[in-house]
Design a protein around this nucleic acid. Structure first.
Lengths: 334, 334
DNA sequence: GTCGCTTTTGCAAGCGTGTGCAAATGCTGC
DNA sequence: GCAGCATTTGCACACGCTTGCAAAAGCGAC
């Protein structure tokens, strides 16, 4: 590394002919400093290229300004969209995002949270994976805040943001039946996360309430390829479904592609398809997928505003957001 | 925030019955500490839930372990894939990623880099936007390292990672001609980044070398909708192109969708299409897009290995990577 | 000029860590 | 037991910053 170190407040103070406290106060909002010295400090700082050392500031204030985002499958459309919204909101609130990728092993969420603790992150937002109870307890005990997105879990302390998955599933079941469909199917992955399972159970329950059975098929992880695989399983059955609700838009895209190009089926004439997330591709004209829009901006806003709020400690807070149905062309009628 | 502060090395030392230096040394690799005390410290630390304060450590060592990723359009397939690879590599090297979103205004890249300086980031990786010279100079002067990905620029000091865009463009021009196409077009956005323009110019030049003209059309920013718009401009011309090279896969997807669904054209029979990036959607069977694969993993590896290397300072380093042609079904023959 | 009051300023004590240096400890061979 | 050596340990200072506290400075009124 270069010999030349960063310029410190001390040097600025000397150049401006004031005490070190003065320069510190100049860069601390709400501190008492006269306009005259303030200007002297600002000039000197600019000339020297001074920037407050947030490491040291965090050390003193016991508040780093860092928020950890713990996320897997970053390359996925929905995840990256959420990531975008979160970083945007965090920056608006003067926080900075530390990104931790948990794609690797299974204990990686714990490792990630430990990293968050090391950097004294003010908070962590978990978009994936369920950390060990001992770790989250440690976070909470040390005044860190925790947000769990779509990760239903029974811990006390963290903010949990969820969707009305079951309601949405019921709505889509109704839509299928109105379109004249009677042979319903549900396409899922084997990930088994709470939100995916809530959609599945909600759909099956709603169908049962209308006197219909549901063929459920699960495969692999939650991606395009799994959608194709599930299509192969469902569409080679003796009795083909005439409507399928996919737990995710990616699954739905894979399913539609297989149905059309591999089984030469027409969507929505021969089979109706619905998804969940409203990723960008759902609106592409090759798909025109009817789906539920994840309120990513709202989610990000809720998460961040809770993180930066003064109060809101330790009460068991859960936010349930509504997913709007976006009607396109993959279901008949409408 | 909670009254209970984080546990410090001091408390661990007291509980273990050793000096504070001992616990510090226990958590510093390569420090001299006997196995016996080391174990005592480890036990005490575990019992108390101690974690080294990286803020303080960074302050002392003048090396924070933080690397800033400065990126816009995080939700885009290519960007998020690169992000995934970079965070992966950084974590492998014991670094941690600070994510900075520059979607907002134009000066946001500068603001972002300034944030990086405040946290004494060891390095910054810029995936988008060109920061002001004064800021990058400041980074470099203070021993920060800088990596520019696909952002050709004439500064000295940073590592620049680029692709052989022009070569790729020439290859695809040849492929078009071999497929019997003579009326070539290039679809671009108005972003005007170096790599996009290199593809355009390379394509036009290669075509000219073969005695062919190219219809060039640019629209908006680099996304699906712009692809559709460009299609509308190109396909309503008196003389329609029979082959179009899109500067980006997203543009290509938009173009193909418009060509097929809006103009009822068949790809590749009536028009051949090629893209660039090899995003996941390019392989989806609705597109089957022939495209060039961005070597994201290689890019990430090059960037990170340079960042953590001891040497490699101040020499003007440029890495030019090769983009493999991925042949699918959007071009005839092959 | 002096008094009372408000605002500004400087001092110094921390925050939690790494590390050079000297003292202490352990080990080996007589 | 003791000299000679390698290893471990503790002390104390440094890193760059914030902030309580008291001294200093400004200001208006008498």
């Amino acid at each position: 590394m270069s010999q030349k170190l960063f310029v410190s407040a001390q040097e600025v103070a000397e150049k401006a002919g004031v005490s070190r406290s003065a320069v510190s106060r100049t860069f601390t909002s709400g501190a008492s400093v006269s306009p005259k010295t303030r200007q002297k400090v600002l000039d000197a700082a600019d000339a020297l290229g001074y920037h407050v050392n947030h490491l040291a500031r965090g050390l003193m204030r016991n508040e780093s300004g860092i928020v950890c985002l713990i996320v897997s499958e970053i390359g996925t459309p929905y995840r990256s969209a959420l990531l975008r919204a979160l970083t945007q909101q965090l920056q608006n609130s003067g926080k900075v995002a530390m990104l931790i990728n948990t794609d690797r092993s299974d204990g990686s969420a714990d490792l990630a949270l430990r990293q968050a603790i090391r950097y004294r992150a003010d908070a962590s937002i978990i978009l994936s994976g369920l950390p060990d109870k001992s770790i989250t307890d440690l976070c909470l005990k040390n005044g860190q805040r925790l947000v769990l997105i779509n990760r239903d879990d029974d811990r006390e302390g963290p903010l949990k943001i969820n969707l009305d998955d079951a309601d949405a599933a019921a709505r889509i079941a109704t839509a299928f039946v109105r379109a004249g469909c009677r042979k319903l199917a549900f396409a899922n992955s084997q990930a088994g996360t709470p939100s995916l399972m809530a959609r599945e159970h909600g759909f099956v329950a709603a169908a049962k309430a209308m006197g219909l059975d549901v063929m459920v098929e699960r495969f692999g992880h939650t991606g395009y390829e799994s959608g194709r695989a599930v299509a192969q399983q469902l569409l080679t059955r003796k009795e083909r479904p005439d409507a399928v609700f996919c737990a995710t838009d990616l699954l739905a895209c894979g399913f539609m592609d297989a149905a059309r190009h591999q089984f030469s089926m027409s969507v929505p004439d021969q089979i109706c398809v619905a998804g969940f997330d409203d990723i960008e591709q759902a609106s592409w004209s090759s798909y025109g997928l009817t789906t539920f829009a994840q309120p990513v901006d709202m989610t990000a806003r809720e998460a961040v505003s809770w993180l930066v709020s003064e109060t809101a400690e330790s009460e068991n807070h859960t936010v349930r957001l509504h997913a709007d149905l976006v009607w396109r062309t993959s279901i008949r009628g409408g």
